[in-house]
Design a protein around this nucleic acid. Structure first.
Lengths: 213, 213
DNA sequence: GAACAAACAGTCAAGCCTGCTTGTTTCTTG
DNA sequence: CAAGAAACAAGCAGGCTTGACTGTTTGTTC
């Protein structure tokens, strides 16, 4: 038996157990997302996850009794992380003038083509035909959806009190979701760029203070 | 051994073998789509398909040597059928005036929330992580995508020679794809209606002869 | 420092899925 | 009408996955 294989801190070092537990859960969830992206939901066996995370099978089953528990927790975890990253990126630098809308769309499109989206897609599709999974995914999705919507409204500086504005923002999010889906099996970057260019123009026109719905 | 269980024509009746073969393939493909919708890709075992189709396992393997062959053929089959239905529906009745755009969107949205879309979604997601499956799905998807695009342009009466029009049509299709995805785990009918109302307005404004990109 | 609880490691059995193999029926061709 | 080829039926074996079980180590509390 080797003691130190470079992954897990050797037990001779005193580390608070709570901290180790947290790290172990994090490794499990991250390994899960990686495998979700690489192999899809069905291809993500719990054995594979524990192997990649460097966590024993027993420990894994202790933290996440079932595969569904593990996968839902993993997607929720990375979604939160990614949401924070997105907010930070928006905070850092967004142009102020008429190029702002386009920049926001770029940010959203990046988000909806990231590994996080891919993992979430796998989860959605799996949840469609798995009752218990869906029960966990639907509320998660609603929460994340509302959050994303709120952020988009803010970034675009849209006035939701005007009729139709809310729907336009939602349409924008559904559009990037559709674009994200198209990008999963084919590299769609060029086409996406042109579409977003055009949609940014249409959006600016529709959101402009002067236009009526 | 029962002879006539009401599913397969009894062999005492003389039916051209070519016809029986065709019917058997059709039953297999239809059962595949049904199961794809009900249970997802991973849940669609070949045994289940042959059972539901009333076809022996040997016959199934004769027609479709692998699961991938079967699934791709099935989705292609229903896609063609559905495409024809859609064209027929468009042919029958579409308003002429300013409500035409909205009606076209309705048609598209119906298409992208139908069982056919669900089955195709399962196939896409599965193909993402299965090399051989993707090799078959990508060309199929391109063919269908181009066809849908062409039809949409025609139905909308859009002038693709103008810059940006092509991109708006594509955006519309990506939007309904995104809406279709959202509809798979939650009933999204009301929200979709409002979004499409608003999108139709934006589209009419952007496609109007007078507007510049 | 001793006892108790939680976390963890490794093994195992049951169940299922895929596709191959063997044997039978039906159609076609000379 | 006979023989060969194609289509079809059914069973089966190998491989994999899931989650449960048993025993050990680590941390906490009195």
């Amino acid at each position: 038996m080797r003691r130190d294989d470079g992954v897990v801190p050797p037990s001779t070092v005193r580390v608070p157990q709570e901290e180790r537990t947290r790290a172990m859960r994090a490794r499990l969830m991250e390994a899960t997302v990686e495998l979700l992206v690489e192999r899809g939901f069905a291809g993500t066996s719990t054995t594979l996850v524990s192997g990649r995370a460097g966590v024993s099978r027993g420990a894994q089953l202790h933290h996440f009794p079932t595969k569904n528990d593990l996968v839902v927790a993993a997607v929720e975890h990375v979604t939160d992380v990614r949401g924070a990253e997105l907010a930070a990126a928006a905070e850092r630098g967004l142009p102020r003038g008429d190029r702002r809308t386009r920049a926001v769309l770029e940010l959203l499109a990046d988000h909806f083509t990231s590994p996080v989206f891919t993992a979430a897609l796998e989860l959605w599709v799996a949840a469609r035909t798995d009752e218990s999974l869906r029960a966990a995914v639907v509320p998660l999705e609603q929460r994340v959806g509302r959050q994303t919507h709120r952020m988009t409204v803010e970034l675009l500086g849209a006035d939701e009190s005007r009729t139709g504005v809310r729907e336009l923002v939602q349409a924008t999010l559904d559009l990037v979701r559709g674009l994200g889906l198209a990008d999963t099996i084919t590299d769609d970057t060029d086409r996406r760029r042109r579409i977003l260019d055009r949609w940014a123009a249409a959006l600016d026109q529709a959101l402009a203070p002067g236009s009526a719905s």
